[in-house]
Amino acid sequence: MSRAPGDLTPTAGQTVGPFFHYALPYPGDSELVPPGRADAVRLHGVVRDGAGDPVPDALLEIWQADPSGAIAQEPGSLRRDGFTFTGWGRAATDATGHYSFSTVTPGATGPGQAPFVAVTVFARGLLNRLFTRAYLPGDLDGDTLLASVAEDRRHTLVAVADEQGYRFDIRLQGEGETVFLRHPRH
């Protein structure tokens, strides 16, 4: 028997592999809001490996609050209507390791909480998904998680403002390695 009755040990993850491109990406996946809308911002970056080379077969997912800090519970991420903000999106990296989302700037979800975009990373060669956070640039002094991270690594969790929005690069390994997260009960 593959799982004994009553066994509630979490199922193990496995790599997303090299062949997800025809299955997981879909039209509009990375457009939480239509690009070009007045409040649309770009969240983009490059995923790199331990040698500093771009990773052309990674997949990122983001999940975030709307600008007021509200957390959407609306369906429609897979068939976007252009008007409903679902808070969730998916983007594969291209041949240069680059990913890009069209979204809005998230607001704080509670008093004293710095706004961030929750990010999941999948890739060929990555045996289990990784979680991280992309904080918005600004005053982050009061944030509990950032305060718990060594100062020289804190910047890996903070997006950089650019002309269209925010840049958030991900380094899977090596110099400037992104801080990836582990949650209790996992």
Partner: peptide
Amino acid sequence: SSLLRHPTKDLHHADPEGVE
């Protein structure tokens, strides 16, 4: 394929907040 694609630092403990 995992050689250059696995983090070398320990995963950092985070209590889930907000959207998480």
